[in-house]
Simulated scan of single mutants.
Amino acid sequence: MARPPFPPFTEETAAQKVQAAEDAWNTRDPERVALAYTEDSVWRNRDQFITGRAEIVEFLRRKWERELDYALRKELWSFSGDRIAVRFQYECRDASGQWWRSYGNELWEFTADGLMRRREASINDFPITEADRRVFGPRAADERGGLIPVR
């Protein structure tokens, strides 16, 4: 199963890969998201280590059961060959109604057929009020490629 665009990445194709990942994650559909990764993909997500699509699906199910109204923005940071670096922010609320903004960086490595074989994510969470929210659902087409504010 191939997943274009393929490495080696250009600025344009790396940006396409980042937007495709953002779009998929905003569906909150674990099975759909997992299709972008190799069968034996290796992740480090915060302090968790995940291997393979089945574990990815289970991890994402648990994540989106806990992180309600999840909405994500990703931004291309850098790319070279078969690797892409991304920064991102997402917002969600927990079961008590507390809203959170999570800031993070990801390092991605791809196979020749465009599937991600490695993902390393460092993420920090910051409590916000509902009035402080700025990420609402999938990004509108005219907002794609825009910079994510630091704060």
Score class of each variant (00 low, 15 high):
P5Q: 10
E11V: 06
E11C: 07
E12I: 10
E12M: 10
E12H: 09
K17V: 09
V18G: 04
Q19T: 03
D23T: 05
A24T: 01
N26E: 01
R28D: 01
D29K: 03
P30T: 02
E31I: 11
L35K: 05
V42M: 12
W43D: 10
R46I: 13
Q48R: 15
I50K: 10
I50F: 06
R53F: 02
R53G: 04
V57E: 04
L60P: 00
L60I: 06
R61S: 13
R62L: 14
R62I: 12
W64A: 05
E65Q: 14
R66E: 12
A71P: 02
R73T: 05
W77P: 00
S78R: 13
I84G: 03
Q89P: 07
E91L: 06
E91D: 01
R93F: 09
S102H: 11
E109N: 11
F110S: 08
G114F: 00
L115I: 06
R119M: 10
E120G: 08
E120F: 09
A121L: 08
A121G: 13
I123N: 15
T129P: 00
A131Y: 07
D132H: 08
F136I: 04
G137E: 02
D142I: 14
R144P: 00
G146N: 13
L147H: 13
I148T: 04
P149G: 02
V150A: 14
